[in-house]
């Protein structure tokens, strides 16, 4: 297959994301990366669990009083829905419908921005109402590292998807960029996977114990 063939938008094969060797390698390499990310987040979760409610000599607000369930619930629904919309985008990619794929990726980005806005409000609220800051105590450091690292992933994912959308807007779908879209959507799902554990282990278990 020549380079020009790869960049053609018509007559795409079934599963364009895995039709080329480059696409297959990206797919495998990215799953390998996700395995590593799992361990990375596990170390942050372990640190958080070990240092939860550790205030040292300073005064701090314990998890049961600090967290509010309403905002976390809204954030969870926003991120879960954005996971579904990126599935919709991949559905249209497999049917070779570039415009609809772009549309659903756009919806995904908007929902992700909504999530990010809620998280920024949440951190602002903790810092100003409860003096729960990064440097206040070990609990604060562990909390902001874990949740902030996830938030950082959301920011990166949003920039990634937006860049792909803008860069390929005029190209249309082809064998060169289909793997890129597919892998960005895998990343977005992984962000939601991590959030499932954050809302369960950090917020819900913090509210119970």
């Amino acid at each position: 297959m020549t380079h020009d063939d790869m960049l053609r938008s018509d007559n795409l094969p079934h599963e364009p994301e895995k039709a080329t060797l480059e696409g297959k390698n990206k797919f495998l390499g990215f799953w390998f990366f996700l395995g590593g990310e799992t361990v990375l987040f596990a170390s942050l979760f372990g640190t958080y669990l070990a240092l939860k409610n550790s205030f040292g000599g300073t005064e701090g607000v314990p998890t049961t009083e600090l967290y509010g369930l309403e905002l976390v619930f809204i954030m969870t629904v926003l991120l879960l829905t954005s996971s579904l919309t990126s599935v919709y985008a991949m559905y249209h990619m497999k049917n070779h419908d570039f415009k609809k794929m772009q549309l659903w990726l756009g919806v995904t980005v908007l929902l992700g921005l909504g999530f990010l806005g809620c998280e920024i409000y949440e951190f602002y609220h903790y810092v100003h109402e409860y003096h729960h800051t990064f440097t206040a105590h070990a609990f604060g450091s562990a909390f902001y590292t874990l949740v902030g690292f996830h938030g950082g992933h959301v920011v990166f994912g949003l920039l990634w998807i937006t860049t792909l959308m803008i860069r390929n807007a005029k190209r249309g779908l082809n064998l060169y960029n289909a793997p890129k879209f597919y892998i960005a959507s895998l990343y977005w799902h992984f962000i939601d996977v991590v959030w499932v554990f954050i809302f369960t282990v950090v917020y819900l278990m913090g509210k119970v114990a």
Binding site: G36, E37, F45, G46
Partner: peptide, 18 residues
């Protein structure tokens, strides 16, 4: 294989740290 290896190492990490 990759994600379950990751989960295995993740479980050990959380267990160790806690």
């Amino acid at each position: 294989l990759m994600i379950y290896s990751g989960v295995f190492a993740a479980a050990l990490t959380v267990l160790g740290l806690t």
